[in-house]
Amino acid sequence: MNDDASTFVAPPPHPGGSFWLPVQGSTKAPEVDSLFHFITGISLFFFVLIVGLIVWFLIQYRRRPGIEPQPSPHHNTVLELSWSILPSLLLVVMFYRGFTSYMDMRTPPDGAMEINVNAKKWSWLFTYSNGWGEPELHVPRDVPVTLVMTSEDVIHSLFIPAFRVKMDVVPGRYTKLWFNATEVGEFTLFCTEYCGTRHSDMLAKVVVHDSVAEYQQWLEKASDPYTDQDGQPRPLAEVGAMFYTKRGCIQCHSTDGSAKTGPTFKGTFGTTQKMTDGTDVVIDENYVRESILNPMAKVRGGFRPVMPTFQGQLKDQDIGAIIAYMKSLK
């Protein structure tokens, strides 16, 4: 599998989009689209006017023998003022409409549901009200949701075309973005601020649940990985595998023995490996736990110290699950 191909399985484009714009998935979408079509109308009018005049002048005044340019005025102040003031009136209208809907789009209604977003080099993490973190964004329909976002390394940008929302995720501060989803189904979320190698793979799925109840039900089941659908305890290794994908380990650690940005998980548990400073370390529970919480402590020989810390994103129980998963990969 070519290392460059994207591993993200995108949901099919939601039906209902127009030629120019995707489906109107949030309360603000119709407003944005109507301004979009308003400006398109004005632009088409001026475009047809100008190109029409060019073509007409070309045909009418094409240089032919015997045809001399007739005298015509070289300046006409009235004409000049008219084609400066009239367009500027249109511009004021455009500005005003853009400005009013922008004010609503940037001030979240109070009482909106808050979800914390953590962006880091090439994966998203959405932390819900009960502290559970998911790489997918799940929201109920017709409920205003505020995303409080920050980044752990470089500038990213969260863009959901269907909801007409976009805001940069800046390290060193919080930025907010809110929307009120109206269309049920699955949408795609893009990163639109260049953030390095896998910028184009930093996508996430947005799932809009039909009702708040359905959303709550999903949240309970998702935030308790240790029991499967019908309430039985799920085997630890399987939970570990789920964390392996959800927390983004998959992006740098392979499970088929091939070294990627990070060492492979296959067949390394229990072995002794050489560190960058030359010392030999047994890959046991303590080493894995320490490397997850403080990756710079003991870096495997031959690998760059680029692993971000997962402090505060993986509870002790979750680390235990990942260790069980590594053991199962003999």
């Binding site: 920050t150 390290p171 060193g172």
Partner: peptide, 16 residues
């Protein structure tokens, strides 16, 4: 927004 992040940057979050 910068101050909010500053105050939340308590010791255990080692982002900065």
């Amino acid at each position: 927004e910068v101050d909010a992040w500053d105050s939340s940057r308590s010791p255990q979050s080692t982002t900065a």
